[in-house]
Design a protein around this nucleic acid. Sequence first.
DNA 1: TTGTAAGCGTTATCAA
DNA 2: TTGATAACGCTTACAA
Lengths: 336, 336
Amino acid sequence: MDKPATIKDVADLARVHAATASRALNPQTRDKVSPRTAARIVEAARTLGYSPNSAARSLRTRTSSVVGVVIPDLRNPVFPPIVRGVEDALREAGYLALLGNTDGDAERERDLLATMRGQQLAGFILATSKRDSLPFGPDVSVVLVNRRTDAGDVASVVADSRAGVHALVNLLVERGHSRIAHLAGPQDTSTGVERHRAFLDGLAAHDLAPVGVEVCAAFSEQAGFEATHKLLAAVRPTAIVAGNDMIALGCYGALAELGLRCPEDVSVTGFNDMPFVDKQRPALTTVRIPHYDIGYEAARLLLERIAAPASPPKRVVLPVELIVRGSVAGPAADRA
Amino acid sequence: MDKPATIKDVADLARVHAATASRALNPQTRDKVSPRTAARIVEAARTLGYSPNSAARSLRTRTSSVVGVVIPDLRNPVFPPIVRGVEDALREAGYLALLGNTDGDAERERDLLATMRGQQLAGFILATSKRDSLPFGPDVSVVLVNRRTDAGDVASVVADSRAGVHALVNLLVERGHSRIAHLAGPQDTSTGVERHRAFLDGLAAHDLAPVGVEVCAAFSEQAGFEATHKLLAAVRPTAIVAGNDMIALGCYGALAELGLRCPEDVSVTGFNDMPFVDKQRPALTTVRIPHYDIGYEAARLLLERIAAPASPPKRVVLPVELIVRGSVAGPAADRA
DNA sequence: TTGTAAGCGTTATCAA
DNA sequence: TTGATAACGCTTACAA
């Protein structure tokens, strides 16, 4: 067990040539070798504990069973289940996931992709949120997560944020709200832009206009806190649609500081249904996104593209679920 | 940009031989080539967007710049910051992280490690929690996270759980508690066992015995919920030390169901200081573990071992911090 | 200081 | 059906 066995060792033990051993051991080409010798070779491989040297194989085949998975930051709670879904789907196909964080930083992303490019990866799953163009040629298999290019030629998996925002707006309108504001996510992210747009035309469908829109500097509690203060300095909505759960939590904090009660004075909604938002006070009304499924589906799509690179890239939209909790009530006027 | 540039392309452009280009591009051997030609080569590499083919390099050098990172489940909130710390330290050294989840399943773990072994990895970071022995020879660089082998010959990074549990016990005793129980984590995990032991001898240091100990089936809310019911069917502690935050949250639920108030009737402590436990009601008293630092340190240690495999394996213990919040008060008797 | 040449382990092509 | 051979891109003695 000192040096790992090579295919030459296996071939010698089975008294065949290395090329034959290669054919016998590769499912693709197994039928090009007689069953008897194939069995002998497989047996030899087992006794030697042979496992192929992936470096040599990659060098020869110009590909590998490793996929690059690029995300902004694993500590953002939406990504762990996505990555887990990716990994599960990859593993079922014998692939492995090479993980990298970019912090949304363009240079760090370029750097990472350059390093990864050297690794003969079979493909990439990109969940970075910036809306710039892709640093890949059409020869590289790519699936985008929660993001789309303007050019429609890249496979992608997204949640139906649009439908989610509409469901939130509809809920608020049904409960009697007409003075509704939006704490938008950063407008250089596709989710930020998309939810903002959906908010506007969701309202428009009810012949309503937003009572105010404030753009947050980040999808963070702090940014949500600050944006809420700015928003409420100007207008008095009875309901606030936040760009995501983190922003909604920041909104909770600012409301408390201003002596406004949620939901009695202001209803609040989030987006993502992060862990523990059901335990907040009040429990947050939000939209649940199938994070794990998004990751799983993205990996499946990538494997499909690896197998058939020429096929037209699919764009999958996964359904979301409205989760109604205590943070939404009728407008204060109803009870006045 | 069709085919990625090879070192030969770079050499041709710089009008030198591939070997010279290799020397110039490798920090190790840069001084073996004249500064002028080296500069020309580096320039050529940049204009061609050259990045070395790692398969070829691995094949030649029998190693790679990729490290296997094996954890039970990324969705467990302790792991994302650890993995992020690992990735940051690796990236600073030009390494990449190959991530795999095992779900604590022995077969899945064996499977994963076998797949990874074929990849010429430079080393492994193992954060799986089972206490079984290592499936590696001494030729493989390994660092353990939150876990140690019984044999002391493997590098590891752990948090000082022992000190953390003692701090919790001391806090409770100072507040006047003497009827203290423990909801232990699974006893086939090293953290579960270690915290249990620390609980017992932390009490013993105050000449106290536990009023009850219930072992949870998992580090989960559900398991904590069930174990709390069992515990309270038998005994009436004034304080409960939970094996981690998830178990503590399960405990919250069971207490509420039994009509017991926290902290008025029962004080509760957790472990880990997960995100959002400060937002629970009551806010959870717990022990903060430097997750990111643990990951970062583990990767640093691994890189050291890769550089000097013969050096004696270090065992790093990182300090923890007691976080006192509303879930701990004096025992009810004080106020009666 | 630079060039030459060999070889890492595998697989694809060609010939037998 | 099997064997011989070359090539993938890189690094490293060794030679110049």
